Amino acid sequence: MLAYIGLGSNLDNPRAQVEQAFAELAALSGCELLARSPLYGSTAIGPGEQPDYVNAVGLLKTELTPLALLDALQAIEQSHRRVRLEHWGPRTLDLDILLLDNLSIDSERLKVPHPYLTQRSFVLYPLADIAPALHLPDGRSLQEVVALCPRDGLAQIE
């Protein structure tokens, strides 16, 4: 199964957090990191004044079930001392399953495609870097969705 993973950090050296997370994704049992986007800088979305984010997207080939992959990603977040104090609050590391093959999943623990996938420039632009010909499960091309999403200050930093 192919899994597109969104990575983000805005605390404790965000660039190093994302780079380390890529290394940890590559080392996950039953997974192979096939591609990674450049790093991007983005303005934080969420409550209060927050530092800017470093974002990227990775492509994993995985033998894990969707929930086992979610558990593995959450374990990586925890190893980075991720604290969930407030929704969309600052974080050392955020790993989101954006897409899993062409699956649609709507469970209490996991929603795929990611509910905000088509609204977030910091996900769409890096995703387009590694999968420009991708089509979403609803049939729309990624390029079509990217064209409708303003960059909102998003800038490639690597």
Rank of each mutant, 00 (worst) to 15 (best):
A75D: 15
I105Q: 06
T65I: 12
L142P: 12
R15W: 03
L136V: 02
L127A: 01
C149R: 05
G48K: 04
A35S: 10
M1P: 09
G89A: 00
W88N: 11
K111H: 05
P150W: 07
D96P: 01
F122T: 10
Y125I: 11
A128D: 03
A35Q: 15
E24Y: 07
L67E: 01
I97D: 10
L148V: 08
L60S: 06
L39H: 07
A16H: 13
A56G: 13
L134C: 09
L127Q: 01
T118L: 10
A147Q: 05
E49G: 11
T43A: 08
L39C: 06
L34Q: 13
R120P: 06
Y125L: 11
R120H: 05
L39D: 02
A155R: 15
A27V: 08
D52E: 14
T62C: 11
C31P: 13
G8D: 06
I105P: 00
L100Q: 07
W88C: 02
A131E: 10
V123W: 09
G89W: 08
L25K: 07
D101C: 09
L93P: 01
V112N: 04
Q17W: 06
K61G: 15
L59E: 10
V145T: 10
V145L: 12
H114T: 04
L39E: 00
E19Q: 15
P113F: 09
L154R: 09
R91F: 02
L117F: 12
I105G: 02
V123P: 15
P90T: 08
L103H: 14
C31T: 15
Q20A: 15
R36K: 12
G46E: 02
V18F: 10
Q50H: 01
S79W: 07
A23N: 14
D106V: 01
Q20L: 12
R120C: 13
G30Y: 04
D96M: 00
F122C: 04
L67W: 04
N10T: 03
E158C: 15
S121A: 15
N102D: 15
R140D: 11
L67Y: 05
